[in-house]
Simulated assay, not measured.
Amino acid sequence: MIDVQRLRVLRAVAEHGSFNQAAAVLRLTPSAVSQQVAALERGLGAQVVARSTRGVTLTPAGHIMVGAAESVAAELEHARQQVAELSTGRTQLTVATFTSGGRLLLPSALARLMAAHPRTVLHVREGEPEDTLPLVRQGAVDLALAYHFDGPLPVGPRPGTSLEWTPLLEDPLHVVLPQGHRLVGHDSLDLAELAAEPWVLGCLKTEAYLRRYAEQAGFDPDIRGTTTDYFFARSLVAAGMGISLIPSIALTPEIPGLSTVSLKSPVPIRHIGVAAINGRDRPHVTTLIHALREQATQHNGH
Rank of each mutant, 00 (worst) to 15 (best):
S71M: 11
L183W: 04
E193P: 01
R158F: 04
A32R: 08
L76V: 13
T99N: 13
V48H: 00
R80V: 10
A296N: 06
P30E: 03
R112I: 04
I269S: 06
W199M: 04
V72Y: 04
A73E: 13
E164Q: 13
S162P: 00
I289T: 05
K264P: 02
T286P: 04
L58W: 04
I255E: 13
R125L: 14
Q179D: 15
A14P: 02
D190S: 15
R8G: 07
A196E: 15
P172T: 09
G160E: 07
S259Q: 14
N300H: 12
L201S: 03
A192L: 11
G257H: 07
A50W: 10
S235G: 15
A296D: 00
P198K: 00
Y147C: 03
G151I: 07
R103T: 12
L245G: 04
T53M: 12
G202P: 04
L10P: 00
A233Y: 01
D142E: 11
V48E: 02
V121D: 14
K264E: 15
L104E: 05
E197H: 07
D142T: 05
T260N: 07
A111H: 11
P154Y: 02
Q21K: 12
L189G: 03
E207W: 03
A14H: 03
V124H: 05
S71Q: 13
D150M: 05
P129R: 02
L183V: 07
T88A: 08
I246Y: 00
Q5I: 10
H290L: 11
I2Q: 12
V95K: 01
A296Y: 00
E77M: 11
M241G: 07
H63Q: 15
E41V: 06
G279M: 06
A79Y: 11
S87C: 12
L288K: 01
V48S: 01
T59Y: 04
